[in-house]
């Protein structure tokens, strides 16, 4: 039936076939060029999704570890950090005021500065020792005394008007 029904007029000629093929190539190439850098779109999407999940997982794990490490710090270390913070707050104010003092108060200030320098050296040595893992009660006590002394000197300098606020 097939051969009897169709005639040569029903078939496309060579030029028509070439024309259709050219149009077909243009039509399919446009889509392929859009996906040129993504040869396998589903795999690419899964990869992106997996990367995002791994990123957030890593951030979550790091945050948890960091907070658990911070929570596990011994009391001595946290006390040391508190003293450090308090001294830093004082020191932010005092040097500025010292710079504004008149020349007549020079010797007194120099003596204070020498005292503070000695304290700083002692504190730095002790902190170095405790930072290496030596948390003996005697060293901790000595460190707190030095902090206390330094705070006291800074406080006196402000209260006795050795510096002007």
């Amino acid at each position: 039936m097939n051969d009897r029904f169709y005639s040569n007029e029903d078939l496309p000629n060579g030029e028509q076939k070439r024309r259709m093929w050219r149009a077909l190539r243009r039509g399919t190439r446009r889509r392929r060029s859009l996906l040129m850098f993504v040869p396998d779109l589903p795999s690419f999407s899964y990869g992106i999704a997996a990367s995002v999940i791994v990123y957030f997982l890593a951030v979550g794990v790091l945050s948890t570890v960091r907070s658990s490490i911070a929570g596990a710090q011994p009391d001595a270390v946290r006390l040391d950090q508190a003293y450090q913070l308090a001294i830093e707050q004082f020191e932010r104010v005092v040097p500025r005021v010292v710079a504004s003092r008149s020349a007549s108060s020079g010797p007194s200030l120099e003596a204070r500065q020498a005292e503070l320098a000695q304290l700083n050296t002692a504190i730095a040595e002790l902190r170095l020792a405790t930072g290496e893992g030596d948390l003996s009660p005697l060293k901790q006590k000595r460190l707190r005394q030095l902090y206390g002394l330094k705070l006291q000197i800074l406080q006196e300098m402000i209260e006795n008007a050795e510096v002007e606020l």
Partner: peptide, 26 residues
């Protein structure tokens, strides 16, 4: 050939048939 001659039975306009054929292949 098979698709063209089949779709040719719905139109005498060969450009129209070509269009259907190429769109079908795309």
């Amino acid at each position: 050939d098979a698709l063209y001659r089949f779709l040719k039975q719905y139109s005498d306009d060969s450009f129209c048939v070509e269009d259907w054929v190429q769109r079908a292949f795309i």
